[in-house]
Design a protein around this nucleic acid. Structure first.
Length: 300
DNA sequence: CACGCGTGGCT
DNA sequence: TAGCCAAGCGT
């Protein structure tokens, strides 16, 4: 082991990150020893755009209720959507249900471990496929989420924040940082994400507590402000997304099918209401009953 | 590649 | 207080 001097444009030292993570990782339930590939896949899917705090209790209930992919596959879509609750983006629940069926029927009820196969599953994209391969199976692969992109933008490139995503470049950036050995690479991937979540945060980074401060290009540059193209801010109030959420909430809060009148009550703009209800039907999040009422899929 | 897709907490 | 932000995916 040769000591690498922390001067100039040195890359991040895997040991600094691994040691820090080993001592400071939050004890999240899906990180517990013995968590299956299925447990990791469910957690990663729930964590897509939803904070840890809200995911944790729902994940624990899901693991108790559906410990294997075949268990979830046997549930109705309505049951799955109810159990998804208010995590948001409920199409994720529908896709996870589909994926459970594929795993149960085509992969022996075991979550695949290679990125290519994982990528073929509904709702599993570049991030989730690698997260499962790395965190569940200890493989060496770049895992790039918004946190890692921010850490790399700062520590490696000296920028205030990540610019627009570029999958190929982002993956290459992170791959170049990983140590050779699988297990150490996997731990470093987890450490990069954790660092972005708890230290190298978007708004008020805690640089004093950062394990790689000495190697950070952004710190060396005097922590300049983000200079890239302005980030798009997503509107919510008044959008179809809000209306769809309200419609689905009526269904979740009812034990069975509801009338058109009950749905009409949640939004005054009839045109937008109808468009949203139609899109929910198209997405398979709502079904119409024979008598013209509306229900969660499989619940009539 | 830009956009649509939920929800709630934080500053 | 009204953005801003949060372990993305599919089209």
């Amino acid at each position: 082991m040769t000591a690498v001097p922390k001067t100039g444009a040195s890359p991040l030292d895997p040991d600094d990150l691994i040691d820090w993570f080993t001592a400071n990782a939050r004890p999240l339930p899906w990180r517990a020893p013995g968590t299956t590939g299925w447990g990791v896949l469910v957690s990663e899917t729930m964590l897509q755009q939803t904070p840890v705090k809200r995911v944790q209790p729902v994940w624990e209930e899901w693991m108790r209720r559906w410990p294997k992919p075949s268990d979830l596959a046997a549930a109705t879509q309505g049951e799955v959507l109810r159990a998804w609750g208010k995590l948001g983006y409920p199409r994720r629940a529908v896709r996870l249900h589909e994926t459970a069926t594929v795993i149960a029927t085509e992969h022996g009820d075991v979550v695949p471990s290679d990125v290519e196969t994982l990528l073929s599953l509904p709702g599993v994209g570049e991030y989730t496929a690698r997260a499962v391969a790395v965190f569940a199976y200890g493989k060496r692969a770049p895992v790039v989420d918004t946190n890692v992109r921010r850490v790399v933008a700062r520590a490696v490139h000296g920028a205030g924040d990540a610019g627009p995503p570029s999958t190929k470049r982002d993956l290459a950036d992170v791959a170049a940082l990983l140590p050779e050995e699988d297990a150490r690479a996997a731990t470093m991937s987890a450490a990069l994400m954790e660092l972005g979540q708890v230290i190298c945060t978007a708004r008020s980074p805690l640089c004093q507590q950062c394990p790689v401060l000495a190697d950070c290009a952004w710190n060396r540059a005097g922590r300049p402000a983000y200079a890239g193209p302005p980030k798009k801010v997503q509107k919510f109030a008044g959008t179809d997304r809000q209306v769809r959420g309200k419609l689905l909430d009526v269904l979740r809060n009812s034990p069975g099918p509801v009338t058109r009148e009950q749905l009409d009550a949640v939004w005054s703009d009839a045109g937008q209401r109808d468009r949203c209800l139609d899109s929910l039907l198209v997405d398979g999040l709502v079904e119409q009953t024979d008598d013209g009422r509306f229900a969660l899929p499989g619940e009539h």
